[in-house]
Protein backbone atom coordinates (compact mmCIF):
# COMPACT_ATOMS: atom_id res chain seq x y z
CA UNK A 1 0.00 0.00 0.00
CA UNK A 2 2.69 2.47 0.91
CA UNK A 3 5.00 3.44 -1.84
CA UNK A 4 7.68 5.48 -0.11
CA UNK A 5 10.63 6.84 -1.97
CA UNK A 6 14.21 7.87 -1.63
CA UNK A 7 14.44 11.41 -2.83
CA UNK A 8 17.22 13.60 -4.03
CA UNK A 9 17.21 16.61 -6.31
CA UNK A 10 18.05 14.51 -9.30
CA UNK A 11 16.32 11.21 -8.80
CA UNK A 12 13.12 9.89 -7.36
CA UNK A 13 13.31 6.12 -7.10
CA UNK A 14 10.32 4.30 -5.66
CA UNK A 15 11.32 1.65 -3.12
CA UNK A 16 9.40 -1.07 -1.37
CA UNK A 17 7.80 -0.19 1.96
CA UNK A 18 10.03 -0.95 4.90
CA UNK A 19 13.16 -0.71 2.77
CA UNK A 20 16.19 -0.01 4.97
CA UNK A 21 16.82 3.43 3.47
CA UNK A 22 13.25 4.58 4.09
CA UNK A 23 14.05 6.81 7.05
CA UNK A 24 17.07 8.29 5.30
CA UNK A 25 14.93 10.50 3.09
CA UNK A 26 14.08 12.53 6.19
CA UNK A 27 17.77 13.43 6.45
CA UNK A 28 18.21 14.21 2.76
CA UNK A 29 17.70 17.38 0.72
CA UNK A 30 14.30 16.07 -0.36
CA UNK A 31 11.99 18.24 -2.45
CA UNK A 32 8.88 16.21 -1.60
CA UNK A 33 6.53 18.52 0.33
CA UNK A 34 5.45 15.64 2.56
CA UNK A 35 9.03 14.83 3.56
CA UNK A 36 9.74 18.54 4.14
CA UNK A 37 6.56 18.84 6.20
CA UNK A 38 7.70 16.04 8.52
CA UNK A 39 11.22 17.47 8.63
CA UNK A 40 9.74 20.77 9.83
CA UNK A 41 7.53 19.05 12.40
CA UNK A 42 10.27 16.90 13.94
CA UNK A 43 12.91 19.68 13.93
CA UNK A 44 10.51 22.14 15.50
CA UNK A 45 9.45 19.65 18.17
CA UNK A 46 13.10 19.17 19.12
CA UNK A 47 13.39 22.93 19.66
CA UNK A 48 10.07 22.87 21.57
CA UNK A 49 11.80 20.59 24.08
CA UNK A 50 14.85 22.92 24.19
CA UNK A 51 12.60 25.93 24.82
CA UNK A 52 10.73 23.85 27.39
CA UNK A 53 13.94 23.22 29.33
CA UNK A 54 14.54 27.00 29.42
CA UNK A 55 10.98 27.42 30.74
CA UNK A 56 11.63 24.83 33.46
CA UNK A 57 14.68 26.83 34.57
CA UNK A 58 12.63 30.06 34.62
CA UNK A 59 9.84 28.50 36.67
CA UNK A 60 12.36 26.71 38.90
CA UNK A 61 13.87 30.10 39.70
CA UNK A 62 10.45 31.64 40.36
CA UNK A 63 9.20 28.94 42.74
CA UNK A 64 10.88 30.90 45.56
CA UNK A 65 10.87 34.71 45.96
CA UNK A 66 14.67 34.89 46.16
CA UNK A 67 16.94 34.72 43.11
CA UNK A 68 18.67 31.57 44.23
CA UNK A 69 18.67 28.98 41.45
CA UNK A 70 20.64 30.66 38.66
CA UNK A 71 22.61 33.85 38.24
CA UNK A 72 20.52 36.85 37.15
CA UNK A 73 22.35 37.10 33.83
CA UNK A 74 21.59 33.43 33.20
CA UNK A 75 17.94 34.11 34.08
CA UNK A 76 17.82 36.97 31.58
CA UNK A 77 19.37 34.73 28.93
CA UNK A 78 16.82 32.01 29.75
CA UNK A 79 13.70 34.13 29.17
CA UNK A 80 15.22 35.71 26.07
CA UNK A 81 16.10 32.36 24.56
CA UNK A 82 12.83 30.77 25.72
CA UNK A 83 10.81 33.33 23.76
CA UNK A 84 13.05 33.27 20.72
CA UNK A 85 13.23 29.49 20.48
CA UNK A 86 9.53 28.95 21.13
CA UNK A 87 8.46 31.41 18.43
CA UNK A 88 11.11 31.22 15.72
CA UNK A 89 12.05 27.56 16.13
CA UNK A 90 8.86 25.92 17.40
CA UNK A 91 5.53 27.52 16.48
CA UNK A 92 6.55 29.04 13.14
CA UNK A 93 8.36 26.00 11.70
CA UNK A 94 5.80 23.61 13.18
CA UNK A 95 2.89 25.37 11.46
CA UNK A 96 4.94 25.65 8.27
CA UNK A 97 5.38 21.89 8.53
CA UNK A 98 1.64 21.29 8.81
CA UNK A 99 1.01 23.72 5.96
CA UNK A 100 3.69 22.10 3.84
CA UNK A 101 2.26 18.64 4.34
CA UNK A 102 -1.41 19.54 4.00
CA UNK A 103 -1.82 22.47 1.59
CA UNK A 104 -0.76 20.68 -1.63
CA UNK A 105 -2.87 17.63 -0.68
CA UNK A 106 -5.88 19.77 0.20
CA UNK A 107 -5.88 21.78 -3.02
CA UNK A 108 -5.12 18.77 -5.20
CA UNK A 109 -1.54 19.63 -6.22
CA UNK A 110 1.39 17.28 -6.71
CA UNK A 111 3.82 19.49 -4.78
CA UNK A 112 4.50 23.08 -3.81
CA UNK A 113 5.06 25.62 -6.60
CA UNK A 114 8.82 25.85 -5.92
CA UNK A 115 9.97 22.54 -4.40
CA UNK A 116 13.67 23.40 -4.18
CA UNK A 117 13.02 26.81 -2.64
CA UNK A 118 10.86 24.91 -0.16
CA UNK A 119 13.73 22.59 0.75
CA UNK A 120 16.21 25.49 1.06
CA UNK A 121 13.77 27.37 3.33
CA UNK A 122 13.51 24.32 5.55
CA UNK A 123 17.26 23.72 5.82
CA UNK A 124 17.77 27.32 6.95
CA UNK A 125 15.82 26.44 10.13
CA UNK A 126 18.43 24.07 11.63
CA UNK A 127 21.13 26.50 10.46
CA UNK A 128 19.79 29.52 12.32
CA UNK A 129 18.83 27.22 15.19
CA UNK A 130 22.49 26.20 15.44
CA UNK A 131 23.60 29.85 15.28
CA UNK A 132 21.24 30.70 18.13
CA UNK A 133 22.40 27.72 20.20
CA UNK A 134 26.04 28.64 19.50
CA UNK A 135 25.47 31.82 21.49
CA UNK A 136 25.74 29.66 24.64
CA UNK A 137 29.37 29.09 23.76
CA UNK A 138 30.52 32.65 23.13
CA UNK A 139 31.98 34.90 25.86
CA UNK A 140 29.18 36.62 27.76
CA UNK A 141 26.63 33.96 26.86
CA UNK A 142 23.38 34.36 24.91
CA UNK A 143 21.37 37.52 24.36
CA UNK A 144 19.72 38.82 27.52
CA UNK A 145 17.58 41.68 26.28
CA UNK A 146 14.25 39.94 25.70
CA UNK A 147 12.41 41.44 22.75
CA UNK A 148 14.19 44.74 23.21
CA UNK A 149 17.27 43.40 21.42
Amino acid sequence: MTNLATESIAASQPTMPGAPNDWKRFFSFSTDHKVIGIQYLVTSFFFFLVGGIFAMIIRGELITPEADLVDRTVYNAMFTMHGTVMLFLWTFPCLLGLGNYLVPLMIGARDMAFPRLNAVAFWMVPIFGAILMASFLVPGGPAQAGWWA
Partner: peptide, 26 residues
Protein backbone atom coordinates in the same frame (compact mmCIF):
# COMPACT_ATOMS: atom_id res chain seq x y z
CA UNK B 1 25.14 36.59 22.11
CA UNK B 2 23.22 39.63 20.91
CA UNK B 3 24.91 39.64 17.51
CA UNK B 4 24.20 35.93 17.03
CA UNK B 5 20.60 36.50 18.12
CA UNK B 6 20.14 39.22 15.50
CA UNK B 7 21.83 37.10 12.85
CA UNK B 8 19.51 34.19 13.63
CA UNK B 9 16.43 36.43 13.50
CA UNK B 10 17.55 37.90 10.16
CA UNK B 11 18.14 34.46 8.63
CA UNK B 12 14.81 33.28 10.02
CA UNK B 13 13.19 36.26 8.33
CA UNK B 14 14.70 35.45 4.96
CA UNK B 15 13.75 31.76 5.25
CA UNK B 16 10.17 32.64 6.17
CA UNK B 17 9.83 35.09 3.28
CA UNK B 18 10.93 32.29 0.95
CA UNK B 19 8.30 30.03 2.50
CA UNK B 20 5.62 32.69 2.19
CA UNK B 21 6.30 33.27 -1.53
CA UNK B 22 6.01 29.53 -2.05
CA UNK B 23 2.71 29.13 -0.19
CA UNK B 24 0.99 32.12 -1.77
CA UNK B 25 2.06 31.02 -5.26
CA UNK B 26 1.04 27.42 -4.64
Amino acid sequence: GQVLWLLAVAISGVASIMGAVNFVTT
